[in-house]
Amino acid sequence: YHPGVFRGDKWSCCHQKEKTGQGCDKTR
């Protein structure tokens, strides 16, 4: 789950560079 959006080459919430990554918050 990603609370942010994928912008450019990373997520705005956790700056992960993998769009298919696990995400940053799994509580939702």
Results as ranks from 00 to 15, higher is better:
Tyr1Ala: 01
Tyr1Ile: 10
Tyr1Gln: 04
Tyr1Val: 05
Tyr1Phe: 11
His2Val: 01
His2Asn: 09
His2Phe: 00
His2Leu: 03
His2Lys: 01
His2Gln: 00
His2Cys: 00
Pro3Asn: 10
Pro3Val: 05
Pro3Ser: 07
Pro3His: 04
Pro3Thr: 14
Pro3Trp: 06
Pro3Met: 12
Pro3Arg: 08
Gly4Tyr: 05
Gly4Lys: 05
Gly4Thr: 04
Gly4Arg: 02
Gly4Pro: 05
Val5Thr: 15
Val5Ser: 13
Val5Trp: 01
Val5Gly: 06
Val5His: 07
Phe6Gly: 02
Phe6Asn: 12
Phe6Arg: 04
Phe6Ile: 06
Phe6Gln: 11
Phe6Pro: 07
Phe6Cys: 06
Phe6Ser: 07
Arg7Ala: 09
Arg7Asp: 05
Arg7Lys: 10
Arg7Phe: 03
Arg7Cys: 05
Arg7Met: 07
Arg7Leu: 03
Arg7Ile: 12
Arg7Glu: 09
Gly8Tyr: 06
Gly8Ser: 14
Gly8Asp: 14
Gly8Ile: 06
Gly8Asn: 15
Gly8Lys: 13
Gly8Phe: 06
Gly8Trp: 01
Gly8His: 15
Asp9Glu: 15
Asp9Lys: 10
Asp9Gln: 14
Asp9Met: 03
Asp9His: 10
Asp9Phe: 06
Asp9Trp: 06
Asp9Ile: 01
Lys10Glu: 08
Lys10Ile: 03
Lys10Val: 12
Lys10Trp: 03
Lys10Pro: 00
Lys10Ala: 09
Lys10Met: 11
Lys10Cys: 08
Lys10Asp: 09
Trp11Tyr: 05
Trp11Met: 09
Trp11Ile: 02
Trp11Leu: 02
Trp11Phe: 09
Ser12Tyr: 02
Ser12Leu: 02
Ser12Gln: 15
Ser12Thr: 04
Cys13Thr: 00
Cys13Pro: 08
Cys13Gly: 02
Cys13Val: 03
Cys13Leu: 01
Cys13Ile: 00
Cys13His: 04
Cys13Ser: 03
Cys13Tyr: 01
Cys14Asn: 03
Cys14Tyr: 05
Cys14Trp: 03
Cys14Leu: 00
His15Asn: 06
His15Pro: 03
His15Met: 15
Gln16Ile: 11
Gln16Glu: 13
Gln16Thr: 08
Gln16Phe: 02
Lys17Ala: 10
Lys17Ser: 11
Lys17Arg: 11
Lys17Pro: 13
Lys17Tyr: 05
Lys17Trp: 10
Glu18Met: 14
Glu18Gln: 01
Glu18Ile: 12
Glu18Ala: 09
Glu18Cys: 06
Glu18Trp: 07
Glu18Leu: 05
Lys19Thr: 13
Lys19Val: 04
Lys19Glu: 15
Lys19Pro: 04
Thr20Lys: 10
Thr20Gln: 11
Thr20Arg: 10
Thr20Met: 15
Thr20Gly: 12
Thr20Pro: 03
Thr20His: 09
Thr20Glu: 10
Thr20Trp: 07
Gly21Trp: 01
Gly21His: 05
Gly21Met: 15
Gly21Ala: 14
Gly21Cys: 13
Gly21Pro: 02
Gly21Phe: 10
Gln22Trp: 02
Gln22Leu: 04
Gln22Ile: 03
Gln22Ser: 09
Gln22Arg: 07
Gln22Asn: 13
Cys24Asp: 06
Cys24Gln: 04
Cys24Phe: 02
Cys24Asn: 10
Cys24Thr: 00
Asp25Leu: 08
Asp25Cys: 07
Asp25Ser: 11
Asp25Lys: 12
Asp25Glu: 12
Lys26Val: 15
Lys26Cys: 03
Lys26Asn: 08
Lys26Ser: 12
Thr27Gly: 12
Thr27Cys: 14
Thr27Tyr: 06
Thr27Ala: 14
Thr27Gln: 12
Thr27Met: 15
Thr27Ser: 10
Thr27Leu: 11
Arg28Lys: 11
Arg28Ser: 14
Arg28Glu: 14
Arg28Asn: 12
